[in-house]
Amino acid sequence: MGGSERSTFRGLGVDLAADVAGPTSGTPVLFLHGSGQTRRSWGKALNEGARRGFRAVALDLRGHGDSQWSPDGRYDLGLFADDLAAVLEQFPAPPIVVGASLGGLAGMLTAAATPRLVRALVLVDITARIEFDGTKEVMDFMGSGLNGFATLDEAADAVAAYLPHRERPKDTRGIARNLGLRDGRYYWHWDPAFMQMGKDAAQRRGAPDRLVAAARALTVPTLLLRGGRSRIVSDAGAREFLEHVPHAEHVDIADAHHMIAGDANDAFNQAVFDFVSRH
């Protein structure tokens, strides 16, 4: 990936893969992807961070990409936050954490619980209030690939159906990096057991209150970056978050959907690195 190097961090009992770019003396910026994604979704942001002199790190969360899967098949927000806290302890200085969706939730929980580990926080289209319909669309898409795909073109068709606002790529080499070939079929690079996350009734009941409490406890500089067409974060959800976190900054990217970095990369980089450069 550009001029990046492969690295490994230790989470809570699992090894987590990462790409690292930029000068070792640069302020560290840690990018965390969303559900079903991998560190490769940050390719352009990683390179831009390195170009600007930051020590940019893109991490695969447990059960995703090249990171180890949970040995017991368990996944929950607390576990992702524990992994993140362990990773942050391995940095020479507190990084600026940029988290999309699931990665943002882990970042918010960790920054609230141990602010000494986080220099600043960027939440990419995620708040304490998550819209059900948008979440269901994400999980339905992930579920549709559980049995794998016969060809790369079939996988590309599934992505195009899920993201109709994007032009379907003619070259499947990019999508191939997010798939693995097993028994003659292509599977996404994430643990199928991840689909059980949130199925436990006690977890579902406690999660909203825990996220609101974490938002209210945030003291680090915070930016909420929202896609104007997001179905995960509504206008009301963004306003509510800013009431919980009065010191937070807020940027809407009008034509972007949930995956802002992919939908409007230039606008995303401008908003993120303007904030990062000030903190």
Rank of each mutant, 00 (worst) to 15 (best):
M1T: 15
G2R: 15
G2D: 14
G2Y: 04
G3E: 08
S4F: 08
E5M: 12
T8A: 12
F9A: 05
G11V: 07
V14W: 04
V14T: 07
V14R: 12
D15M: 08
L16C: 11
A17S: 14
A18M: 01
D19W: 10
D19E: 14
V20K: 05
V20S: 10
T24A: 15
T24M: 11
G36K: 04
G36F: 00
Q37D: 07
T38I: 08
S41L: 11
K44S: 15
K44I: 14
N47L: 07
N47C: 06
R51G: 09
G53S: 02
F54Q: 07
L61N: 03
R62I: 02
R62Q: 05
D66S: 10
W69I: 08
D72V: 05
G73E: 04
G73T: 06
R74A: 14
D76L: 07
A81G: 07
A81C: 11
A81V: 02
V87N: 04
Q90W: 03
F91M: 00
F91D: 02
P95L: 12
V98E: 08
L109I: 01
L109E: 01
A112I: 00
L117Q: 02
L117D: 08
R119Q: 09
V122E: 00
V122D: 09
T127N: 10
T127M: 10
T127D: 06
T127P: 09
R129Q: 10
R129Y: 06
I130T: 11
D133M: 12
E137D: 15
D140R: 15
D140P: 03
G148Y: 01
F149C: 01
L152H: 13
A155E: 03
D157T: 05
A158C: 08
R166W: 03
E167W: 00
E167R: 08
K170G: 09
G180L: 07
L181E: 07
L181V: 02
L181H: 09
R182S: 00
D183K: 10
D183F: 05
R185A: 06
W190L: 05
W190M: 02
A193F: 00
F194L: 14
M195T: 10
K199W: 08
A201K: 02
A202T: 06
A202M: 07
G206H: 03
P208W: 13
L211V: 04
V212T: 13
A217C: 03
L218Q: 03
L223F: 00
G227L: 09
G228H: 01
R231D: 07
I232Y: 01
S234E: 03
E240F: 01
F241M: 12
V245D: 09
A248G: 04
A248I: 00
D252W: 14
I253Q: 00
A254D: 12
D255A: 13
H257N: 13
M259S: 10
A261W: 01
A264G: 04
A264R: 14
A267N: 12
A267D: 13
F268S: 03
F273D: 08
F273T: 13
D274L: 03
V276A: 13
V276D: 00
S277F: 01
H279S: 06
H279T: 11
